[in-house]
Computed example of a mutant assay.
Amino acid sequence: MEKITIDLKDFLLTGNFGPVVIGMTKDDVIHWLGDPGQVHDFKSGSAVLFYNGFELFYSTDDDQLYAIQNDNLYYLFEENAPYPINEKVSVDTSFLHFGKPLTLGNLKDYLAQQQIDFEIVHKDEYDEIVLESGVKFDFENRGSKPDACLLNGIRYFKY
């Protein structure tokens, strides 16, 4: 079995999760990433493949992938990169290792330093950083200090 490492920075810049791209079939995803830890069918036309924190959503009508997200971000704070999602695949998260929880403020500063274009989108309950690729970072409820809000999720949805 050939092991692969997915570069999180590449995902952020392109929306491609290593060899996995939006529009790919569920079977193709499993071919590249191996068997998921769990599969959940929402019985609403969509289902999700779980890979140790990463969630890949697909339509049950045509089995096509339409979203990739992780809203279980403890791995970003681990010092051991790459982060394994199963025996076959690891994700190189070193691009976002700060040694502390990621906040809106320190992520904005870091992306600017790396010369990665982004925009801030203010939602009713939270703020998002949106990259040119369409990948989004969302943060906890903004409260009175928006730049101190902690990263909640990284998401790429394409319908």
Rank of each mutant, 00 (worst) to 15 (best):
T5R: 11
T5Q: 11
K9S: 12
K9F: 10
K9A: 13
D10I: 13
L13Q: 10
L13S: 10
T14I: 08
N16Q: 14
P19F: 08
V20T: 09
V21C: 05
V21Y: 07
G23C: 09
T25L: 12
K26A: 02
D27L: 07
H31L: 15
H31Y: 14
D35S: 13
P36G: 00
H40S: 00
S44H: 04
S44Y: 07
A47C: 07
A47S: 15
F50I: 05
Y51N: 02
Y51V: 03
N52Y: 10
N52P: 00
N52Q: 07
G53F: 07
F57W: 14
Y58A: 07
T60N: 00
T60R: 01
D61P: 00
D62I: 06
D63M: 13
Q64P: 00
L65D: 00
Y66I: 01
A67E: 13
I68D: 01
Q69D: 08
Y75I: 09
Y75W: 11
Y75L: 13
L76P: 06
E79W: 03
A81W: 08
P82V: 13
N86C: 12
N86M: 13
N86V: 12
E87D: 15
K88P: 05
V91L: 08
S94E: 04
F95H: 08
L96V: 08
L102F: 10
L104M: 08
L107S: 07
K108V: 11
K108D: 05
Y110K: 14
Y110V: 06
A112E: 15
Q113I: 04
Q113V: 12
Q113N: 04
I120D: 12
V121S: 06
V121L: 11
K123M: 13
E125C: 09
E125H: 14
D127R: 14
V130A: 01
L131T: 05
L131H: 02
E132M: 15
S133W: 05
V135A: 04
V135D: 03
D138S: 15
D138C: 09
F139M: 06
F139K: 01
S144Y: 05
K145W: 00
K145M: 08
C149D: 01
L150I: 15
L150W: 07
L151Q: 03
N152M: 07
N152P: 00
Y156L: 14
F157N: 12
K158L: 14
